[in-house]
Amino acid sequence: MLVSGRSVLLTAALTLAAGSAAAQSQFEKYQKMVAEGSPVELFELVGEGLWKKPQGPKNASLEQCDLGLGAGVLQGAYARLPRYFRDVDRVMDLETRMLHCMMTLQGRSLEEATKRLFGNADKPSEMEYLSAYVAGQSRGHAMAPGQSHPREQAAYELGRKLYFYRTGLWDFSCASCHGEEGKRIRMSELPVLYKPEAARPLIATWPAYRVSNSTFKTMQWRINNCFRQMRTPEPVFGSEVVNAMNMFLTVTAQGEPYRGPGTKR
């Protein structure tokens, strides 16, 4: 019998030195090892518990939450988001919709439900656990966000324009870094996310466990964190701006079978 622990990752990380093609293939090796030892399933398990746990003033679970395919339907629901929801007359992604369900089904206040959206390794957030669980129910489903309603089309258009929009203290657009193929920031490759070939593998694996954070991260966090590094103020969680960015990226990645939650560097 053979026993192997994740401590081997340390040696893999240390060999990641030289700035060359060799380093890149080492990096791929590292990514593969990381994926094999990913704790994503633990997050899915805790998320399932939280999804089914009665909470809030109405002491209700989220099991009747309608993510777009009907109340309580989880299979393939994440792959069809973001989409237009008639009951709120707006486009919502997974996290925005779950927040809506916390407020309507569980009777929680916006303030309470958004108090701690982004967690850390010591204490991941409820939203992170829930995202892991719900996204995991879409494995194998092709990404197919809503595109027929005028509001869905408007969200895509807004996201597309935002991608190239120069703003903030440092005059960046998303395309300042994610605009040209084959570029790196330090040693990290920068995917050109307005092109399907780059957006597909990425969107198909978010939300994800991030080894560098030792915890699970969501799409709203990913977009929020880009803006932080662009030196803008903070986008409001669940706002139209973040949903539009998510819609643009997901439409660009459409057709790709979902295979997340993934494991990132």
Binding site: T232, P233, E240
Partner: peptide, 12 residues
Amino acid sequence: DFRAKGQAKMTR
């Protein structure tokens, strides 16, 4: 859709 946070003011 954005809010000032810490030193990152809305004037940015």
